[in-house]
């Protein structure tokens, strides 16, 4: 199986990354617009009381701000994912250029690991705040996700592997 070029695994992954990149932009745009709409609607309590929405929120006045906050948090989460995909695309660019152990990839991988950890911490913060402000709402999904933390560890290990790769690359460059 080819490693680079048309029909290779990397070209297939590149297509997935490119599609994900553009889909994420669309999703973030939609979430930001929806958050803005929810925020504007929250100023009109009469209008919002007419909206039929299945929710556990008792006080209808809280529906607008809660919805806007949730949508904004969703947009921020997707923004983090977008940054991860953006960095992966940059890493892939070095791979297709035949230079995967470029020193910049170490920083990119570390950033991906930090964003993954940040997203998980943000998710906890979101569910914590939601539990405090809206105690009646079902608080599913705020628990410890071992898969995410394992992924963070894997990314940091890969970053160290790339650091050594970058060092060897430089050594090879200065081998005459």
């Amino acid at each position: 199986m080819r490693t680079l070029g048309p029909g290779s695994v990397s070209s297939f992954l590149k297509i997935i990354l490119d599609v994900t990149w553009f889909v994420l932009w669309v999703v973030i745009g939609a979430l930001a617009l929806a958050a803005l709409a929810a925020l504007l609607l929250s100023f009109n309590t009469e209008l919002i009381s007419k909206i039929e929405l299945e929710t556990d929120i008792g006080d209808r006045r809280l529906l607008g701000p809660a919805l806007a906050s949730a949508l904004l948090a969703g947009a921020l989460y997707m923004g983090g994912v977008l940054l991860i995909v953006g960095n992966l695309r940059l890493i892939f660019k070095t791979l297709t250029a035949g230079d995967p152990f470029h020193p910049d990839n170490v920083g990119r991988l570390r950033l991906v690991g930090l964003i993954l950890a940040g997203l998980e911490l943000g998710r906890w913060a979101f569910w914590g705040v939601a539990a405090l402000l809206l105690p009646k709402v079902d608080q599913d999904g705020g628990g410890l996700n071992l898969t995410t933390w394992f992924s963070v560890m894997v990314v940091f290990v890969l970053a160290e592997v790339f650091r050594e790769g970058a060092r060897l690359r430089q050594e090879a460059e200065l081998t005459i």
Binding site: N87, L90, H102, P103, D104, N105, V106, G107, R108, R110, L111, R163, A166, R167, Q170
Partner: peptide, 10 residues
């Protein structure tokens, strides 16, 4: 000079 590699890209 062994640690001269700069790991940027972030």
């Amino acid at each position: 000079d062994e640690d001269e590699v700069e790991y940027g890209g972030a």
